[in-house]
């Protein structure tokens, strides 16, 4: 690949990744673009991304090939290998010759060799103190990745990291809003359902609520679902009230 070509490609890769910051995008697409750009630009024979999951483990999120054995090799690094080291240190891990690390990674090195990989680099995906995962670049020839290439890999990983973190922040906020609005709406509609039951069955609010809860439990639905069905008439008060003959000790509310 000639230098001007590479530069053009690099610019395209950056523009492609930053596009994801402004428009609607899917995180899987972003990561897939990243591994493909990196493999091509940095002359790697395979590339993959592992992200830290909510429980602190590492999960394969993207790979240049869906080949099962390659995915297994990536996933194996949840336990040992350059990715784990990279995520825990937050620094790149370069392994120009995998055979030299056979003792350190007794399972990972033979598994890589089985697929003809001789060298690997792991680049952290981090923003300041937050490390969200690492990108893996495998090569079938031994030798270190040039410093300039490593710089490119880090820059691409940084752009993708910002995209992922901002998407997570927006998603988190919208989940919170939805939860809050949902909690409020369901609270109001449950009170309303108590009123419907109370008026229909000439019972008090306490008995109405116990009937509502007994019916919800019996049908394994949420209180607010049953309440909404009562309000829109898909469920009659009589149906719910017939479930209400429950022991008076069941009064946790």
């Amino acid at each position: 690949m000639t230098t001007p070509d590479r530069e053009k490609q690099l610019v395209r890769a950056f523009v492609g990744l930053s596009d994801t910051l402004v428009s609607d995008y899917d995180i899987t697409d972003l990561l897939q673009d990243l591994v493909e750009h990196c493999a091509e630009l940095l002359r790697a024979d395979a590339a993959g991304i592992l992200l830290v999951d909510p429980r602190g483990g590492l999960r394969v999120m993207a790979s240049t090939s869906e080949h099962t054995r390659l995915l297994e090799l990536f996933q194996q690094q949840a336990n040992e290998g350059p990715c784990v080291d990279c995520v825990s240190s937050g620094e790149p891990v370069s392994v120009p010759d995998l055979t030299e690390r056979a003792e350190q990674w007794p399972r990972f090195v033979p598994a890589a060799a089985e697929q003809d990989f001789r060298a690997v680099d792991a680049v952290p995906m981090r923003l300041r103190d937050e490390i969200i995962g690492a990108m893996n670049l495998f090569r079938t020839r031994t030798g270190a990745m040039p410093d300039a290439d490593l710089g490119v890999a880090r820059a691409l990983a940084d752009v993708a990291t910002i995209g992922i973190l901002s998407e997570r922040a927006i998603h988190h906020r919208s989940v919170l809003v939805t939860q809050l609005e949902g909690a409020l709406s369901s609270r109001l509609i449950v009170e309303q359902a108590k009123g419907i039951l109370s008026a229909s069955g000439a019972t008090d609010m306490d008995h109405a609520f116990r009937s509502l809860r007994a019916y919800a439990r019996r049908t394994q639905s949420r209180l607010s679902q049953v309440a909404a069905q009562l309000a829109d008439g898909t469920l009659t008060a009589a149906q719910v009230l017939s479930a209400g003959d429950v022991p008076a000790t069941d009064r946790s509310r």
Binding site: I189, E191, K194, G195, I196, L197, S198, A199, A231
Partner: peptide, 9 residues
């Protein structure tokens, strides 16, 4: 809200 439900009926 309870009174609204009762009045619906």
């Amino acid at each position: 809200h309870q009174a609204t439900g009762m009045s619906m009926v």
